[in-house]
Design a protein around this nucleic acid. Structure first.
Ligand SMILES: [Mn+2]
Ligand SMILES: [Mn+2]
Ligand SMILES: [Zn+2]
Ligand SMILES: [Zn+2]
Lengths: 138, 138
DNA sequence: GCTGAATTTGCAAATTTGTCGCAATTTAAT
DNA sequence: ATTAAATTGCGACAAATTTGCAAATTCAGC
């Protein structure tokens, strides 16, 4: 189970795998990007609002979760440690979010371009906007 | 002046170029990414808070403004129509945001990868995280 | 330039979102 | 089991965002 990975990341960050953290993690596993509002609402009655925020803040700091700039409010999903590295395609027509399969060529080029400006890239995030295959037809 | 472009975009969207909208636009021209909080604060005494939000919402819908997923809260800046197409590098150490010069090779590759999944790309957004040249040395 | 319909704004109130301190609980190590 | 440290839930709070609506602005047609 992913709890092992989760636990080791937490431990490495000097934090422990607690019940609320397990619950929040479960609420993200096998879910696409979701907004904080939704997450907080889904955690209601199980985990306190403040704890959800504190947990996501911790998760983000430890790289367990990442924020996406999709839709009007930001959304979150688990990082590459729990789902392979990928980017997103957001259909501006139907609003659905699709995963863009990883492309090694693209990855290296992004790093190269960043390095060209003297930057030491650690990671990146790419979102493509447009029409999904379905909406393109109409 | 950019007001012409602005006005035509607004007109095309069935909206008009009003005083408050001019003011808010001016507050973004030649500015890097800024948070809503900052924008609202800077607009204070000139444009009402509610109007700033309504305007930015409109601006985003019409593609005059775009949101960036940088820092803990999202930031906004004018779109390519008012500043050349570019991406961003965010230094996780000093928090500064740098513009990543446009790279045609990269641009086409992004479109290609997206198209490979049957998607019709209209635009995209890329943010690189890492250490800026300065912080890399230390 | 006026006029009127439609759009947009400011204002004030309400709601939602996010934060904070702290006592009670849970966790991890002995 | 005992204990110290970390974490949680619970208000209460502060900040951010939304909403309804009357007044003001915009703009097209005269
Ligand atoms: Mn995804
Ligand atoms: Mn920029
Ligand atoms: Zn679609
Ligand atoms: Zn730096």
């Amino acid at each position: 189970m992913h709890y092992d990975t989760l636990k080791s990341i937490l431990k490495a960050g000097g934090a422990s795998l607690t019940q609320p953290r397990k619950i929040i993690f479960d609420l993200m596993l096998n879910q696409g990007p979701q907004s904080m509002q939704v997450l907080v609402r889904r955690a209601k009655d199980k985990v306190d609002r403040a704890t959800v925020y504190r947990t996501i803040e911790l998760f983000e700091r430890l790289g367990i979760v990442r924020r996406l700039n999709i839709g009007w409010k930001y959304k979150i999903e688990l990082t590459d440690a729990f789902s392979g590295h990928h980017h997103h395609m957001y259909c501006t027509n139907c609003g659905r979010v699709f995963d863009l399969p990883d492309n090694p060529m693209l990855e290296t080029m992004i790093d190269t371009v960043a390095a060209k400006s003297g930057f030491s890239p650690r990671g990146h995030q790419l979102e493509v906007y447009g029409l999904c295959a379905n909406c393109s037809k109409a």
